[in-house]
Simulated scan of single mutants.
Amino acid sequence: MFFYHLFIQLSFSYLGTFTFGLFINMPKKALHTSSLIGMLGWLLYWTIYRLALGSILANFLAALLVGLLGIFCSIKKKMPTTMFSTGLVPLVPGASGYQALAAFINAQTTVAVSKTIHVAMVAGAIALGYVTAQVIADVFYRKSRPR
């Protein structure tokens, strides 16, 4: 049963990233790589979340992985790093945002505020993870560049 769930998680995270890349008209030579990066980021998120370490930490580490892999692939493929940022798509807290909005509409103020704060924290963790990857790459590049 575990491998069935793993297969579902991997295939849908790949397909979600792939279709988003198609939607924004991403170049074909970056589409497959970006989808693999999104799948690996989701796999890390899903593993950490299933280990009950929290969704904030899971999103941060997954975004960090997506950022580092995106930078690595941008160097290898000689493309802008932003081509591989679509790997963040599976991490976006869409369901939580929907639940927060539904709670606001149904006048469940306490639940709505709680969900909204959670969405903001997850979005912040994703942004912080991605920026941290860029900072790590910048520090590494400065040390490896000859003066």
Rank of each mutant, 00 (worst) to 15 (best):
V135C: 03
L51Y: 13
L40V: 09
F3K: 03
I56S: 05
F2R: 11
G38V: 06
K115W: 00
I75S: 07
A125P: 03
I126M: 11
I48D: 12
V92H: 02
L61Q: 07
R147A: 10
L88H: 08
Y141G: 01
I24S: 12
D138T: 04
L128G: 07
F18C: 01
L68Y: 05
L10F: 10
L91V: 02
F20L: 11
Q9W: 07
G129E: 01
L69S: 10
S13L: 11
G124K: 09
A58V: 06
K143T: 09
R142S: 14
G67Y: 14
N106R: 10
L88M: 08
L40A: 11
L6P: 04
V92W: 02
T33V: 15
S34E: 05
F72E: 02
K78R: 15
L61G: 06
K28L: 15
H5L: 13
G21H: 05
L10G: 05
F84D: 05
P27Y: 04
L61P: 06
F72S: 11
V135Y: 09
L22Y: 14
A123Y: 04
G41Q: 06
G54R: 08
C73W: 15
L53M: 15
S55A: 09
S74Q: 13
G54Y: 11
T33R: 02
G67P: 11
V89Y: 01
I117V: 15
V139I: 13
L128R: 00
S144N: 08
Q9Y: 10
A103D: 08
F84M: 10
A127N: 04
F3Q: 08
L88C: 01
L10D: 02
L15M: 14
K78I: 07
A102M: 13
N25E: 11
A102K: 15
L101P: 00
A63T: 06
V113F: 15
L22T: 08
